[in-house]
Measured scan of single mutants.
Amino acid sequence: MQIFVKTLTGKTITLEVEPSDTIENVKAKIQDKEGIPPDQQRLIFAGKQLEDGRTLSDYNIQKDSTLHLVLR
């Protein structure tokens, strides 16, 4: 499925993911596309910070959802 990741600069990254993918996995995909190390990434969805060990389906993230990427 496709999800979107919006950065603070207003750029939107499109990712191909599975509901069973972990947040860690998603961060690795963002690193592949953007070169941002996962340890600098914070992903936010519906006002919640997403934890590495959980999956997209744990957070009820569905296709065409938009996550927000904050760098630390």
Rank of each mutant, 00 (worst) to 15 (best):
S65I: 11
N25S: 07
S20T: 14
F4W: 08
K6W: 10
T9Y: 03
T55L: 10
T12N: 06
D64R: 05
L43H: 01
A46L: 07
T12F: 09
F45Y: 14
E34Q: 07
F4M: 15
T66Y: 02
G47A: 07
T22L: 09
V26N: 00
G10T: 09
E34M: 14
D39V: 13
I3G: 00
Q41W: 05
I13V: 13
K27S: 02
K27W: 06
K27Q: 03
T22K: 09
D52Q: 10
P19H: 12
S20N: 10
D64N: 12
T14Q: 12
L50P: 01
L50I: 09
P38W: 07
K29A: 14
T9K: 13
M1K: 02
L50Y: 01
V70N: 04
Q2L: 13
K6L: 09
E34K: 02
K27I: 05
K48V: 14
F4H: 05
K6Y: 10
K29W: 08
L71A: 09
G35P: 03
Y59L: 06
E24D: 12
G10W: 09
M1I: 05
H68D: 05
L71N: 04
G47W: 07
K6N: 13
F45E: 02
L67S: 01
E51V: 06
T7I: 04
G53K: 09
T22H: 09
Q2H: 14
F4Q: 11
Q41R: 02
G53F: 13
K11R: 05
T12G: 07
S20M: 11
I61D: 00
L15F: 03
D39S: 05
V26A: 04
T66K: 04
D52G: 04
T9H: 09
E18D: 12
Q2E: 14
N60Q: 06
V17P: 02
E24M: 13
T66H: 15
S65K: 03
Q62N: 14
Y59F: 05
V5P: 00
K29P: 00
P19W: 07
I61G: 00
I44G: 09
L8W: 06
H68A: 02
T14K: 14
L43E: 00
D64F: 05
D21K: 11
M1G: 07
Q49A: 10
T7R: 07
D58W: 09
E16N: 09
D64K: 03
R72I: 10
D32E: 10
D64Q: 03
I3D: 00
T14Y: 03
A28Q: 03
I23R: 01
V5F: 04
L15A: 02
Q40V: 10
G10S: 07
G35I: 03
G47D: 09
Q40R: 04
Y59H: 03
L69S: 02
T14D: 06
E34A: 11
L71G: 12
K11Y: 14
Q40W: 05
P19A: 05
T7L: 15
D21H: 08
M1N: 06
A46S: 04
K27N: 02
A46R: 09
P38A: 14
T7A: 04
V5D: 00
E51I: 03
V17G: 02
T55N: 10
I30V: 04
Q40G: 08
L71M: 12
E18S: 15
S65A: 08
A46V: 14
P19N: 06
T7N: 08
L15Q: 01
T55R: 15
K6I: 05
G35N: 03
Q31Y: 12
T55A: 13
Y59P: 00
E34D: 11
V5I: 10
N25K: 06
I13E: 02
G53V: 15
A46E: 15
D32G: 14
E51T: 03
E34T: 04
T66L: 03
K33S: 03
F45H: 08
L50V: 11
L8P: 14
G35Y: 06
M1V: 11
D21L: 05
K29V: 13
V5T: 02
G53L: 08
Q49D: 15
G47E: 06
H68T: 03
R54L: 09
V5N: 00
V26G: 00
K6V: 15
K29I: 03
D32S: 08
N60D: 12
I44Q: 05
T55V: 14
V26L: 14
N60L: 03
L56P: 01
T9W: 03
L67E: 01
E34P: 02
E24I: 05
K6Q: 14
V70L: 04
R72G: 14
K48Q: 10
K63P: 11
S20R: 02
L8I: 07
S65E: 05
T7E: 13
K27T: 02
G10F: 08
I3Q: 00
S57N: 10
S65T: 15
F45R: 04
Q40K: 10
T12Y: 10
E34N: 11
N60Y: 11
T14W: 12
